[in-house]
Design a protein around this nucleic acid. Structure first.
Lengths: 256, 256
DNA sequence: AACAGTATTTCGGCACTGCCGAACAGTAAA
DNA sequence: TTTACTGTTCGGCAGTGCCGAAATACTGTT
């Protein structure tokens, strides 16, 4: 029996707080020493020491009192992404989709039970939403994520739900376990997933799986405003485009 | 007198080693517990504890013994980038350049004395090089970086050199202080910078500055193989394209 | 099967250091 | 000047990161 969760036996607590601090800076969209200390309930002096070292290491930037997440993380993140072969293979196809549909084309992979947007290609008519490349999202809140879940072994899905729960983002988000598994079953049969304003109001999304030797490698989607994402257009124009792209990507992934 | 370097008075050493570990994972392109311990000269048990906690926090991924930098960093990095207004403004112009020239269009900003590739747009003929979005590079090794240096106050440049030195990447890299300052002077007069195989052999690059209220906000460039980047083409086709784009970007940066 | 030889993981104890609270300094408003 | 708020320094204690050794798991080989 493979294990999906390994608790560290002797966790390095300082490393954990280090990342808690950076994540808090992100959540607060920048913070001062006292703001951070208050928010994390640690001494001001401790917050001060952490922020200063992080700044010195180049992972945090400061401008008159406000500390911010630094671009240095983009180096590590970009490197991690560059190692994903799926990324290179998918980009040209995504450009085609974005051009053909005019909407956003999105690529997502799973890591540690969360979905990570590996890439987004912007079409001519695409509305810019408050979403960015690299963003990690709950899998059950997007068409992309549900697609990935649908093709993951059931016990894996269970353990992901155990770990991350099923929090709601809009009133349409699936928050019930059995409801989710029903949806996943449907996705497997239809071989595509929908997101009808489950993550962001006014935004619809269709996704198809990208497989690799029967395993799920990621998911590909097109997203756009509800007004332009009617059922007819999805079935007649977008889905064929997505399936064609997914197929090419699957074939181009070298079986090493 | 503004200070550009602030040594933390009481550095959180564990936070420093945490990042040293992640950076080492990147440098070694993945490592096992023992490889990491050997490389950093720490006890295997310590390496083990760090890696496990980092994995548990989601910042490192493990697959049969090999630990790797995780995609989680892309979330922080992508967030940091999304906060840069320059990014949004520049993307459409960079797409135009990439399409018009067929080469790579690149955008770089400075942070902590290093250059960070905020974006790269790929043209039709662009050769893929081992470079990725977010990569941080030494400023003196690229046309983009030299452009930024040229428009930075002199004492700032001095302190950057003090901190990061002038290491060579190819035999053409500028490694001499006065030579560099001469080059910067020339760049200011020409209002553009060249990179003739100073960072990567076989690769040429032209860059122009993007200013914001007389301060340097970043630099924009086109890069391609030496064979296609002759002086005539640069001056007749590429530079006008770059200057036009830089101008539009400068105007579109809202002066708030 | 038994084995060596490799790796990772656990364990216990010491020294270090991360943590806090209080004192100090610097800034802006009253 | 006083007040109130920051950010910063300092010293001492408790917690924990660190190491080395022992224990366990994994290979592939004989």
């Amino acid at each position: 029996m493979e294990q999906y969760e390994r608790e560290p036996n002797t966790p390095v607590k300082t490393a954990q707080t280090t990342f808690r601090i950076v994540e808090t800076l992100k959540a607060l969209d920048g913070a001062t020493v006292t703001e951070l200390a208050d928010h994390l309930e640690i001494a001001k002096s401790s917050a001060h020491n952490y922020l200063r070292t992080l700044e010195h290491e180049g992972y945090v930037v400061e401008s008159d009192g406000e500390y911010e997440v630094g671009l240095r993380f983009l180096d590590l993140g970009g490197y991690a992404r560059s190692r994903e072969r799926l990324y290179d293979v998918a980009i040209p196809e995504m450009e085609r989709i974005a051009e053909a549909t005019g909407e956003y084309a999105n690529l997502l992979v799973e890591e540690h039970g969360l979905g990570v947007f590996l890439a987004r290609e912007r079409g001519a008519d695409a509305v810019s939403l408050d979403s960015y490349t690299g963003q990690s999202v709950r899998l059950h809140t997007t068409a992309l994520g549900k697609t990935v879940l649908a093709y993951l072994p059931r016990e894996r899905v269970e353990s992901i739900i155990d770990r991350h729960g099923l929090p709601a983002l809009t009133e349409r988000t699936i928050t019930d376990r059995v409801e989710l598994f029903d949806a996943l079953e449907e996705i497997r049969q239809r071989e595509c997933a929908y997101d009808r304003e489950e993550r962001i109001k006014g935004l619809n999304c269709v996704a198809v799986p990208i497989l690799y030797d029967d395993d799920i490698a990621g998911a590909l989607s097109v997203s756009g405003p509800v007004s332009r994402m009617g059922q007819e257009r999805i079935e007649d124009e977008i889905l064929p485009e997505l399936r064609r792209a997914a197929n090419i990507i699957e074939l181009n992934q070298a079986h090493s």
